[in-house]
Structures are given as C-alpha cells and as structure tokens.
Design a binder for these strands. Structure first.
Length: 551
RNA sequence: UGGGGUGUAGCCAAGCGGUAAGGCAACGGGUUUUGAUCCCGUCAUGCGAAGGUUCGAUUCCUUCCACCCCAGCCA
C-alpha cells in the first residue's frame, strides 16, 4: 500500500504525453486570478493544480492578474492575492504578470482583425445587442454595422480609443457566426468603452479588452503550454482557439478545463463573499469564518493542510460537492502531528484540594506532544486551588461519564489522581466550587490502593495561570448547500458561528504563544493565537473528534 | 426544443476489454494519563438505465434517463 503510486489525474496524463511526444518541450501553466476579491478555497484547488503541475513536471507557473475590468478591480486585492499564493507555499516564475501589460499588443491585434475583415465596430446598444444575439434555441441576427468598411472601422476604433464616445455606445466585435449554437461565437465583444482609471495602467485607456480577447493571447505571449481553467469556460474554448488561429500570435497554447471545487456548508462565490464582508455579516475578508485563504489562515489552518486537502479531492471533469469533513480531516491530521499541547479551561469552576497544603506549590513537567520527543517539555504549575471545566464535574452520573463525580476518582492530566468530596452551590443552586482531595503518590503512577481513576481531565492552577478569551467558531452556514435552492443564502447563516468565551483559564506556558501558532488544548480542540488586537485571544481552528457516548 | 459537459458507495476518486484501488464519513473492536491520536475489522455480485458486440464489458457500440454550464459591454 505504501509503495503504490498515486494514479495520475487526467491533466497529468495529458501533460506527460505531450512532453513525451515533444508537443511541448516545457510545461508552462498559469494561475490567472481577477483582482476583484480575496482568494478562497476554490482558488486553492486551482493554485495547487497549476503550481503543482509545474513542480512535478519541472515547468513554470506564472501568476497573471486577469485585470481587464477596471470597474471591479483594486490594488488591495492584487496585494492580498500575492500574499495568499506565497503563504500557500508557491513561488511564481519570473515577475508577476498582468493582462493589462499586454493592452498595446492586444490593440494591435484588434487592428489586425479589422484589416482582415474579422472585426467591426458595432453601434448597437446593449439592449439591442441582446435582441440580435438570439436565444439558446434561436440563432441571432447580423448586426446592421457588421459590414462597415475597414477604413470606417479603423477610424471608429481609433476614436473609441481616444475617448470620443460614451460608455456603452459602441463596441468592437469579432465577425464570426451569429447563427452558431455556441453563443460565444455570435460575434463576441473584443473591446468595450470604460471611462475609468485602471489600477495598473491608470488613465492610459478608455477601452478595455474582454476576457475572451485577452486571456488566450496572454497565454500565448507568455508561452503558456497548458491553460487550465474551470468547466464553465469549456464553451469558450472554440473562441479561444479562434483567436489563436486568426491572430499572428507567437505560440499556441491549449486550454483544458477541470471541475471547480464545491464544498458543502460553504460559499465560494466571490460576489457573495464580498456581500458578507460589505454588509458586515462577518468582520472582514479574513474573518476566521470565511472560506478565504486569509480567513483559514487566521483561523489556524496551515498551508500544508490546505494543500493536502487539494491533493485528497483530486482533479476531474465532473462537478461534485466535496464534504467539508475532508477539509476538517486535513487540518486535524496536520495539527495532531504538529501542534504542541497545552491545557485551557473554557468554563472554569474552582476546585479546592482540601488535603493539599495552602502554602505548597509544585511545578510538573509535561511533554508538549504525546509522541514527539523533538518537542521540548513544558512546565505546569500546581497548587491547592485549581480550575476545572464545569462539564467535567457532576454530583452524580452513570458509568458512561468518565469524569469527576462525588466520591469517585479522576486523573488530573499530568498530575495527581483526585477524589471529589462535595460541591458548594450559590443561592441559584449553581455549583461554584468543588472540594476534593489528592491521592498521595499518584503523579506518574496509579493509586497504591488499586482504585484506578475513571478518566482524565484537564485543569489549570489558580495561582499561576493566564486569563484568556476564546473565540469558538462553527460553520458559517447551517445548510449543506446555502448557495442553492429557493431560499437566500443569508437565511442560512449559523447564528452560533462565533461564540466568544471570556474569562477562560489557560496554562502559563501559553504566554509565549506566537500569533497564528497552533496548539491543541487537550480534550478541547485546536486553537491559535489571533493575529490582531489583544494578545490573549485564541481562535478555535477546529474541535477534536468526539466519540463520547450521549449520556 | 440549440450548443457544451458529467454520471463508479453517503461524499471525493482510481479503473483505459480479464472479473470494482485509495481517502473522507459511518459502524464494530483493541491500545491509551487527551472520550484525541494510533491499530484492526465492516462498508458497491455492483459501475445512471436498457439493449447490442465479445469467451469475457465499468471499459467498445446504440438508444434512453438524470444532473451541470452558456443568451454580461463579468471573469
């Protein structure tokens, strides 16, 4: 099993063959985000695919911003995207590329098509254009401007570029086939007028190329061999090829499509994620509940776990719905192996050890990981008064309850076995203090009288601990497919996606935690120190698996 | 009803004419000073359906069915 090869996915098979056949001498891929939002888990799949392919086949992967629409894009997104790619552990070949840096060439190529009678300036309004386009089942009609002379088209195009016309008044279209069953071939738009500044090119342009007119040509200019995009662009491939065939491009790239990631209980629509941010359903793009890479990072997910997840889900042409439990498995698996352990009491109640001297304290040495001796042990203070979790004590319980019960014993993790004696309550009947006794000589060994403890609970010394705030996160949506169906996705927001717990008691060693460093709070889950504000806030990355029986 | 895709277990996914890998989840059991981890076991006579070709079909052919994408001057 361990020496079995992981089967190649369909793209790896194609690339392996292309390289073997000499169709391409070097693999070049690209990750082409539009800087109109933050990268999310779906992008991670594409990043891992494109950069991963380049890694395994000794090729290059470019980072190219698909920045052809100044109305939606911003420099802040450019910066965030670069940071996320680096965080995932990838490095693009050469400089960061921008589709906008090819605007001059693209404009020349637009001229080329006009001169070849393959493009024309169309004066139809957007509404008229829609009517002329036809429908899914009916062919479109030729634009009345379709047969303008080359001279007139050239003149109009130049004037569009000069900014003489209003937005929406004219476009440059390719002359292909208004009757095509593929709507992308019904004289697609190459350039539209946008009197807007661009984050990269400033005021240089007032006409901007469309995705279709920019993408494949950008691939060609960069020498991309395999241009990998998601399934919904399959319909665009004939157009992609049309430009490559009809333009004097330097190189012929080939487009392939794969099924984008769908994750249940999660939304991966940049528009909707932006809405969550803009309308303040979450704190920001990097809110730990967001499925953005920035959000997962702040939540305590590691890049390794996200890459592992992408490896687990595979790459195919079928569109499925991946269970978020797979992502959760990936991060638990990573953190279990790599996160140091510590103790933190979330709902503290005081426990007094009546037979332990008030003036005595001890410091126990506890391993920071149960099966990694490369982790330095930590010191854990102990004294007469400690905190335990309210959920770990009951006055009475059945045999399934493996925690502290009056008259019964439990092991304090890394310390003594204790036996509960009584519970003190307030006027409301709530337990405010538990009284117990230690069983002598039980650190690191079982009680001499042979009465073993029923279980193990975590604790923190009252005289020497940290007061911390815990942010307990759950899934943002309580419906497996918040994005589909009749109801609006906002209706499915989980009201308990964030529960803030103040006054939690953490062991002293956590004082040296670094921002975003992950820990396992034993018996509770994985947490990381938040990376902003006060230094005493820990975000819960994910809880531990819990196979305890319902009591 | 036009064009483009996809159907293998609850989910993801191998399989490429020779008798259904693996992972996640779930469920049993063992170990355990974390109800964690780890270990062992169970989990498709079946590959969307029906025909056909073949000694043999998840793999080839035919027909049908279901689902997804496309009618932005978004990407």
């Amino acid at each position: 099993m361990s020496n079995e090869q992981k089967p190649l996915n369909f793209l790896e098979q194609i690339i392996k063959k292309d390289l073997a056949d000499g169709k391409y001498t070097k693999l070049v891929t690209r990750f082409p985000p539009e800087p109109n939002g933050y990268l999310h888990i779906g992008h991670a799949k594409s990043i891992c695919l494109n950069f991963g392919l380049a890694e395994t086949f000794g090729g290059d992967c470019h980072l190219r911003f698909d920045d052809t629409n100044p109305a939606k894009e911003e420099q802040v997104y450019v910066d965030a995207i670069k940071q996320d790619v680096i965080w995932l552990g990838y490095q693009w070949a050469g400089e960061v590329r921008y589709a906008s840096s090819y605007f001059d060439t693209l404009y020349e190529w637009a001229h080329y098509l006009v001169k070849n009678h393959q493009a024309y300036v169309c004066d139809l309004s957007p509404e008229q254009a829609r009517e002329y386009r036809g429908t899914l089942t009916e062919p479109g009609k030729n634009s009345p401007y379709r047969d303008r002379s080359v001279e007139e088209n050239l003149d109009l195009l130049a004037r569009m570029k000069r900014g003489e016309f209003a937005e929406g008044s004219r476009v440059l279209r390719a002359k292909i086939d208004m009757a095509s069953g593929n709507i992308n071939l019904r004289d697609p738009i190459l350039y539209r007028i946008r009197n807007q500044a661009h984050h990269q090119t400033g005021e240089d342009w007032c006409i901007y190329p469309t995705y279709d007119f920019a993408h494949g040509q950008g691939d060609s200019i960069e020498g991309v061999s395999h241009s990998i995009c998601s399934l919904e662009f399959a319909d665009h491939r004939p157009l992609y090829d049309w430009f490559i065939e009809n333009l004097p491009v330097p190189h012929k790239p080939q487009q392939y499509e794969f099924g984008r990631l769908n994750l249940n209980y999660t939304i991966t629509s940049k528009r909707k994620l932006k809405q969550l941010v803009d309308e303040e359903y979450v704190e920001a793009w990097d809110d730990p509940r967001m499925p953005t890479l920035a959000g997962y990072r702040r939540r305590g997910y590691t890049a390794a776990a996200i890459r592992k997840f992408c490896e687990m889900i595979g790459v195919t042409r079928s569109d499925g719905m991946v269970d978020v439990a797979m992502l959760e498995h990936a991060i638990r698996d990573d953190l279990d192996k790599n996160a140091p352990r510590a103790m933190c009491v979330i709902n503290p109640i005081k426990l007094v050890l009546l037979n332990y001297p008030a003036d005595k304290t001890e410091v126990f040495t506890a391993p920071s990981h149960p099966n990694r001796d490369d982790f330095a042990p930590r010191s854990v203070p102990f004294g007469r008064e400690i905190y335990i979790d309210a959920a770990d004590f009951r006055e009475e319980a059945n045999k399934k309850y493996k925690r502290l019960v009056i008259g019964k014993r439990v092991r304090l993790r890394h310390a003594y076995v204790i036996e509960a004696q009584e519970a003190l309550k307030n006027a409301a009947g709530e337990i405010v203090e538990v009284r117990a006794r230690i069983i002598e000589n039980t650190v690191g060994k079982d009680p001499e009288d042979g009465v073993k403890p029923k279980g193990v609970i975590h604790w923190v010394a009252a005289h020497d601990c940290l007061d911390v705030t815990l942010k307990l996160y759950e899934r943002l949506f309580n419906h497996p497919e918040p994005d589909t169906g009749e109801r609006h996705f906002l209706d499915f927001i989980n009201p308990e996606s964030l529960v803030v717990k103040r006054g939690c008691k953490a062991e002293k060693s956590l004082a040296s935690a670094q921002p975003l460093q992950g820990f396992q709070f034993e018996r509770e889950g994985y947490f990381c120190l938040d990376n902003r504000g006060e230094s005493t806030v820990f975000n819960r990355t994910i809880g531990l698996r819990d196979s305890s029986p319902k009591i």
